[in-house]
Amino acid sequence: MTSTPIPGPSADTPAPSSAAAPADEGLRQGPLVSPPPATASGEAMIAIEAVSKWYGDFQVLTDCTTAVARGEVVVVCGPSGSGKSTLIKCVNALEPFQKGQITVDGTRVKDRGTNLPKLRARVGMVFQHFELFPHLSITDNLTIAQRKVLGRPGEEARKRGLDLLERVGLSAHAKKHPGQLSGGQQQRVAIARALAMNPVVMLFDEPTSALDPEMVGEVLDVMVELARDGMTMMVVTHEMGFARKVADRVIFMDRGEIVEDATKEAFFGQPRSERAQQFLSKILAH
């Protein structure tokens, strides 16, 4: 288990001047993950072993097995209803599963002895619909879990939250509420909120699907940087451009099964399964 210390103030980042700052400053330089995590290795950060899940009689996941190594970026794709969102939600036990086992950074997810809130606090998650807390200011959204879950002092949590907010280019919005931000801005705040917890892995559940097209880019930019900073990421997305750019591996799911689990080159070069070929030809046709 690694515990990432909170970064100190970086000398090269200018102090936020909220009065003069433009509404949206764009991304700033500097690492999103600090200090940088250990470089990619064969060691599995997430190990998914023979996971099956049913809703009543309906089987949504069938015998899914895969692994995400430390520092690896894995994109999960597939047609809607293929179980990809369900699978990623099993990783931090937002969804229970009946058979198999998932291990995150050495901790078994399905185990009575596992303290699930503690495990989830180390797994960052970004949702399709952002799910910022609408009644809290952006600053409070960034700090509440740090304070209530990690027990960080208010000032320290605030500093960490505002540092990350500046990194995603939104420090002028610290005092606003989520309803006053655009979708793309909300999603960047949501990524910062997850990063504020110093997670060892980040899960993304279709992070750009609910966005207007012109806002997809700003969110993907943050994710690309995060990947380049060495964050371990599992990303459910239809953004094949993102997959091509930063993914190490691509998992293709259909009808609750992992049909294809290949390196990016192999997947985009020549998918082995017919279903993956059909899927790719459909979404890359336009």
Binding site: P117, K118, R120, A121, M125, F127, H129, E131, K148
Partner: peptide
């Protein structure tokens, strides 16, 4: 409330 609100709280480590 959207179902995701409960999930977001849970995912952040809230009991």
């Amino acid at each position: 409330l959207p179902r995701g609100q409960r999930m977001a709280g849970t995912a952040l480590g809230f009991t």
